[in-house]
Design a protein around this nucleic acid. Structure first.
Lengths: 158, 158
DNA sequence: CGACAGTAACTGTTTTGTCAACTACTGAAT
DNA sequence: ATTCAGTAGTTGACAAAACAGTTACTGTCG
């Protein structure tokens, strides 16, 4: 579709449907994240952003990632990531490792304590996801949500 | 990597689908918000949160809303809203009006400058939504996304 | 080789948002 | 009518994240 056509389509249903779909995603996200974060803080004293980064590191090859890789995969800016990493390191959940290939580079590696924490939190987090998100959706809802979001994420061009 | 691989052993298929659906929503949200926000800041020097509040006020009856109504409809906490409102007011986009019915109450009303700004930004924002979100979805994707998120949002119990 | 544009990550500073405590007011129960 | 729990919104203190600028290193091109 051409851009001019999009702008012109402001009154057409197709485009406003898109906007509504986007709004829906925006608000559902806000509501669920808030609830999940509250649960995790209360039950395990762990900010959900920490959890997010740690579980990413745990999944990664060698259980470590370069800062810029982590930046792409996360909600943070680079400098924000540096700060969060400081706190994570101070808490003993990760450690910084100098990169051998590139002397500017730093790997963030999850420690055993970090892995333990993730393992401790996962089951309850799963329950939270069901409580605040999953219970509202049937199988088909979940599937279409998944395919829709996959389409958005699969485009690496940006 | 799929999360189902990690938690697969401990849960049913239905649940891991849910988790993947949630992950999808989480990541898609992050990617799209970032892109939309960047566009709007660059093109119009307007934070997307401001845009969001302003467009809501513009749509509202009498183009004004009570703080608690706005809170429900937004991503902010009450006190966060107070702060954003301060900035919006300072920028001349809204004005506070004392409520006649309830003397504790405050209406936030959009000003002409605010309306002008929204009108200026909206077309480009529509283009951005299409570019970073809508183009990846067909009509059915958008609809199922909408119904799914509606189910989540309609529960007032929390 | 040497210059130098580009990248990786960190740091100083400012902005933004939260939490908890507070003031002001409402409305219902005694 | 008085009490008082509940609601509306703001504020002070603090935490988190962004932005802009800095240092350190890489790799390319003349």
């Amino acid at each position: 579709m051409q851009l001019s056509a999009i702008v012109g389509a402001m009154t057409e249903t197709v485009e406003t449907d898109m906007v509504d779909a986007w709004r829906g995603l925006l608000f559902a996200h806000a509501k669920v994240v808030r609830a999940l974060e509250a649960d995790m803080l209360e039950e395990h004293d762990l900010p959900i952003t920490w959890f997010d980064l740690l579980s990413r590191l745990k999944q990664a090859p060698d259980q470590r990632l370069r800062m810029h890789q982590l930046e792409e995969a996360s909600v943070f800016t680079r400098s924000g990531l540096t700060r969060v990493s400081d706190r994570l390191e101070e808490a003993g959940f990760v450690r910084r490792e100098q990169s051998a290939e590139d002397r500017r580079g730093v790997y963030l590696a999850i420690t055993q304590a970090g892995i333990d924490k993730i393992d401790e939190v996962w089951p309850d987090h799963l329950v939270s996801i069901h409580k605040h998100f999953g219970q509202y959706l049937d199988r088909r809802d979940a599937e279409s949500l998944q395919t829709a979001t996959e389409k958005i994420l699969d485009d690496d061009s940006r």
